[in-house]
Write a protein that binds this DNA or RNA. Structure first.
Lengths: 371, 371
DNA sequence: CCGTGTCTCTAAACCGGTTTAGAAGGTGTG
DNA sequence: CACACCTTCTAAACCGGTTTAGAGACACGG
């Protein structure tokens, strides 16, 4: 069957559909002719601008409907100097994004705002540095997008100046630490970390460690600071935070380091994301520790998978989809040159599951790692 | 600091960069004037077509360089009827994609082919059905993309006819079960499943179950068939496959069903993806089973996280990035109307880790689930 | 010396919209 | 009745490229 069809219709596959008499698509001129008016008037009617009588407008719209005409995005794009597309440049290595559900939910949120607007999302991945800058330059040079989402903000982030110089609109996820011409959408993830720390302190933990994200990323740093502040506020001296790149490998390494402290080891670890919490869980179990009896852990992001581990993971939930939706709306407003301001999302909430429990009377030292 | 800057420069944030004297970007006409030739000749020189003398060409290119001119993608797009963009419509629910690293690696692979070509990826998410069809129609109506990647092929997939009717070029990931005008890039994932089954049989397992993907997805179905075939080839009667939607929740549910069989339960489970394998691992542990002593499990995809669980997961590795790169190259060739043919990727390989071991002498019944 | 062919180049049309300048006709006002 | 003004509409320019038709110069062969 398949072979027949192949041989019959496509001796050489072309990847393009068969020449199935694609009726030439109507243009604005066809509509004008049919409605008996000039192209300009069709344009006016379409964009409902004043200066078109009601009955003429109806006649034009009817003609357009009959012909099944839709204005060419490309032509419109050329004349009005808009792309009707937004860009997202993900600046992490593939591995690190891989298991991070944030972007999926964020993107889904962004797109939920597009259905109405005929917009589209251009996705690019680039490792920070020259490649990243080149990517933004490319998007701007080709005018591929009208605006971009700036995620994973870094300290003194050079993208802000770059994007601004390139003349692109933008929205930052989180508030930058330098002056920025762009509006921001942020969530107080410090509150989330604090909730986790408070929860642990209430459970009697006094030796609490933090496995942090990269300190050059603002949210990584902010969470680390929030961790320290929350611990002190609870009357507990925070243990030094271990820095990671957010990946599972690095989360595992950090956990091993913390457990190597023997009886000085933490009885609870606050991870800066779920992926590392999961990897840390495995390291602890491998070292013979029972979670949560001997060690409590908390994650961040509230990944679906964190609900399906044994034990399941207590985690801080932020609404990434909502974040995406609000960011998109804000960016579109900025592009339309409407007045916009910063947005603060709802507080993250702590989802308590099985990985946290009362602190052990005396910390059990971890066993030497098993193979 | 930040506040000062805000108040000073941007009493009302605009999301657009400051009016920093954006020098109007040069056009082909500017270049022509500077080189003392007509626009047409600049166009010829740029696209190096015959009929331009060597010295004139040099003069034109020099002028272009001096002015920093880059042809407008939009204008070119309008006249040559090409978008220089490819589309990917992900047709799964957010949750299901969330922890699936396939798309990340695939996208990274796709983009590795773009750096040279000035192409861009338009990403869309749509749940199969009306919304999905509307998405493809939208991309085609606006001529947003020159071609699309068809992933997660379904049985009798209506997208093939749709996309073909819309006049888009396409590449299918995997060979469809119906006649298709599009070239395909596929990997023999059946071989991967077979490797897993062979491995388990060699370890002495006789009661092996399969937690399958949706049967209406071709690869889900194909893996299930390969599972049954491999088991029989190894002289083992395969247990009935449990169908899922690829999500962690569903993987957990399937595992619970299998373990509820008591002493009739499988001693090994072959999962159709890693996420379900991880969820299944947790279910087994929660039921008091030791993995791999009492139960062996294998995954599919070789997720980074599967390496960092306890025990780590034996999994089938396919090269998603390579898949993306080859697909992109093929699609671009098809769009350029070069002759193309189907591509078969390298065989997937089984990565053996800790979650598989010799079959238990007598299967231990699972304990009633603990909370 | 003339017709033909080749090479280099230009003018103008074209892709399909938007936008500006202004024409034509009707109404209101002094 | 003349004038201003508003409404409705059109012609033409414009966005910034590509492509076609053909002009002009030159070499070649008969």
């Amino acid at each position: 069957m398949t072979e027949d069809a192949r041989q019959a219709g496509h001796p050489e596959q072309s990847g393009r559909a068969g020449h199935s008499g694609q009726a030439a698509r109507p243009t604005i001129t066809d509509v004008a002719r049919r409605a008996g008016v000039s192209k300009s008037l069709v344009s006016f009617a379409l964009n409902d601008r004043p200066g078109v009588s009601a009955e003429t407008r109806d006649r034009i719209l009817a003609a357009a409907r009959e012909l099944g005409w839709t204005p060419s995005l490309r032509a419109r794009s050329l004349s009005v100097d808009r792309s009707y597309a937004l860009g997202l440049v993900i600046g992490r290595s593939v591995d690190v994004i891989a298991a991070d559900p944030f972007f999926h939910a964020f993107i889904a949120g962004v797109e939920s705002e597009f259905s109405t607007a005929g917009q589209v999302l251009v996705l690019t991945r680039a490792t920070p540095g020259r490649e990243e800058a080149a990517t933004y330059r490319g998007l701007a040079a080709d005018k591929r997008v009208d605006g971009v989402f700036l995620t994973d903000l870094r300290a003194d982030d050079d993208r802000i100046r770059l994007v601004s110089e390139l003349g692109l609109a933008a929205v930052t996820l989180g508030r930058p630490d330098i002056p920025s011409p762009f509006p921001s959408v942020s969530v107080d993830d410090g509150r989330g970390i604090r909730a986790a720390v408070d929860h642990l302190i209430a459970l009697g933990h006094r030796r609490i460690a933090h496995v942090a994200g990269p300190s050059n990323m603002l949210h990584g740093r902010r969470r680390a600071e929030a961790f320290a502040a929350a611990a002190r506020a609870g009357g507990v001296e925070p243990m030094a935070a271990v820095e990671t790149d957010f990946s599972a490998v690095d989360g595992a390494r950090a956990t091993r380091e913390l457990l190597a402290l023997g009886t000085e080891r933490p009885t609870a670890i606050v991870y800066s994301n779920d992926m590392m919490a999961l990897a840390g869980l495995a390291v602890a179990q491998r070292a013979g520790l029972r979670v949560p009896l001997d060690l409590s852990i908390t994650g961040f992001d509230n990944t679906e998978l964190g609900e399906h581990t044994f034990p399941s993971i207590t985690s801080v939930a932020t609404d990434a989809a909502e974040w995406g939706a609000r960011s998109a709306r804000l960016l579109l407003a900025a592009i339309a040159e409407e007045p916009v301001g910063d947005i603060e999302l709802a507080e993250p909430r702590l989802v308590i599951r099985e990985s946290t429990a009362a602190a052990p009377a005396a910390p059990v030292a971890a066993a030497p790692p098993r193979t």
